[in-house]
Amino acid sequence: MELLCLEMDTNIRARPDPNLLRDDRVLQRLLTIEERFLPQYSYFKGVQKDIQPFMRRMVATWMLEVCEEQKCEEEVFPLAMNYLDRFLAVVPIKKCNLQLLGAVCMFLASKLKETRPLTAEKLCIYTDNSIRPQELLEWELVVLGKLKWNLAAVTPNDFIEHIVRRLPLPEDKLALIRKHVQTFIALCATDFRFAMYPPSMIATGSVGAAICGLQLDSADHCQWGDSLTDLLAKITNTEVDVLKECQEQIERVLESSLREGRQQQQQQQTQRGPSGKGLDELDQSSTPTDVRDVNL
């Protein structure tokens, strides 16, 4: 027998398994167990003394950037945020250790989900060497203990395929929809107001927001309109009003983050003066194409 080594630098992945995606039991099971992995308290109102919601946002944005730059799997960032929130719900932490915690959470999430996980050394570099690999490994153990080694948390990403496949969507648009949903989910993970929401609700709201944003419902608006929300609500057993509210909240968060981005851009432009068009700026002006697609 001849053995061929076809190993390449790209990650080989399994195809979506229709047995898992079409069986309703899988979705129902996910819905049953998802609550187990929610943070137990809104921790800024009790447990945490030194850290503030805006600091969570800072560390979250940083984590997202690291995951992007390292081309992590999509679920690594939301999963890492789940670890972070669950830890913060039980252990008070000082501001100066928050980035260490963020790095530890990425380290764990990456190990759980990726073929080639992030290394401790690399993560330390991303903190500008403010932490050492040894500290990362030590605190990994502490975080694991506090999470009771329950790492395989349900994330909003787990629901995407289950929801999307139950909707009458044009096949050629599925990839784009998925991409937008993932982006909305990441956005929600950076915002503390979503930290206590069940993952299924965030996923459902994100699918709704993505479909509306892409105006896939515009051709026959009357038919989709409310019925999209109804259909979505039914798939994940969410209440229609709650879902609507969630979707609107997601859209508001996107809008404000885009506005903030534009302001930042303008600030940078004025700082640099009209003639100072740097490389960064060129890069920026070419990036928000997807945002225009969302059409706010």
Binding site: V59, E65, C67, T183, S257, E281, P288
Partner: peptide, 25 residues
């Protein structure tokens, strides 16, 4: 995660990802 690059880039402007957020440990 290419999608985030385009949609979420407004979140961060042009900072480097490598940075110390909250001062010395």
């Amino acid at each position: 995660m290419a999608s985030h690059k385009s949609m979420l880039s407004p979140l961060r402007g042009t900072r480097r990802a490598r940075r110390n957020l909250f001062g010395p440990v």
